[in-house]
Amino acid sequence: MPHEHNHSHCHDEGHDHDHDHDTNDLGPQDSLYSYIDRSNVVALNANNPGEIVIKPWHERTDEGKSLESDADDQMIIRVPFTGSVRLRSVLLKTGPGDRTPSKVQLFANQENMDFDDIEDKTPTQELDVAQGREVGEYAVKTAKFSNVSSLTLFFPEGQGADTIQIYYLGFLGHWTERKNNPVITVYETQANIADHPKVQGTEGNFSSPQS
């Protein structure tokens, strides 16, 4: 009988936690806050550094600190992660009212983009931002954000006011350490190429006695 009892636990061995479940299940345990390289977050055209709106989960509704665009209603926030992230959704608290961005464009793994670069690039995904006092959760196409080391958010325009304002920016998903597999694959490919001349040389040895 003990074997049957153990058997009931076998579903725990699977990667159930890795499968995409309904975003309604997401919560503090899925927050990527601790995996953001916060000292290297950059906000462009902002009235102060961007790190202050990337807050711990329990401060997501706090309005004590915010980020406002400076010269116009555009802003870029660059967010590097400390590993590889599979992004599930972006959390935003913005506004109020006309100071809400009309949309946000997400760019995965595009380092050091500024306003000049961004005009020529196609976003990985674009999301419309709704007005409201709550923290909005915006689900992304996980397949396009399955191996993200940095995320650039571009807010191209507001909803009427001269500036946009952001109170909170957060991310939900899964974090893994950066994998070394791609590097190993490259070495294997190079090794295979190096092997071919040896094979040809061996054939030459076989034919030499007949010449």
Rank of each mutant, 00 (worst) to 15 (best):
I77P: 06
E177V: 08
R86N: 11
H196F: 15
K144R: 05
T185V: 12
F145M: 02
V104T: 09
A43C: 03
G136E: 03
A108W: 12
P197E: 11
A143P: 06
G160K: 12
G95F: 04
A71P: 00
T61G: 01
P182N: 07
H19E: 12
H9N: 13
V186R: 03
P101C: 00
P197N: 12
H15C: 07
Q125N: 02
I76A: 03
R78L: 06
E63G: 15
E63S: 15
T124G: 10
E119P: 05
Y168E: 10
P2C: 07
D162A: 14
V199L: 15
E13W: 05
T82C: 08
Q159E: 05
I164E: 03
P80N: 02
H17W: 08
H58N: 13
I166H: 02
Q200N: 00
E111A: 15
Q190H: 14
I166M: 05
V42D: 11
F145I: 10
K93F: 01
Y168T: 07
N47C: 03
G136D: 03
R88Q: 13
N45K: 07
G136A: 06
I52C: 11
P182Y: 00
E126S: 15
P197A: 15
Q29A: 15
N205P: 02
S208M: 13
K93H: 04
R133A: 15
F155S: 02
F107E: 09
N147G: 13
I164L: 05
K198V: 11
G201N: 13
E13F: 09
D128F: 08
D116M: 08
F81P: 01
N192D: 09
A194V: 13
I118C: 11
L172M: 08
V140C: 07
A139N: 06
G50P: 08
S66Q: 03
L87V: 02
Y35N: 01
G204I: 08
G14T: 10
L87Q: 04
D117Y: 03
F115H: 05
H9V: 02
N45I: 09
P28Q: 06
A43S: 03
R99P: 01
F81K: 00
D73H: 10
D18T: 09
Y168C: 07
L26C: 08
S8K: 12
F107S: 07
V135W: 03
H7L: 12
D114H: 11
D195T: 11
Y33C: 02
I77M: 13
P156C: 03
G27F: 04
Q210E: 06
P209L: 08
V42P: 05
P156L: 01
N24G: 08
E13D: 09
N109Y: 14
T82R: 15
P182D: 03
S102Q: 02
L153Q: 01
E188P: 04
H17M: 06
E13P: 04
Q74N: 06
W57P: 04
L44H: 07
V104L: 07
G132Q: 09
D25E: 04
E51V: 09
S31H: 07
H196E: 15
F171V: 02
E157K: 06
Q165F: 14
C10S: 13
H58T: 14
D120K: 10
P80K: 01
D162Q: 11
Y167K: 12
D162W: 10
N181I: 13
E63I: 11
G158N: 11
A194F: 05
T122Q: 11
A143E: 14
H17C: 07
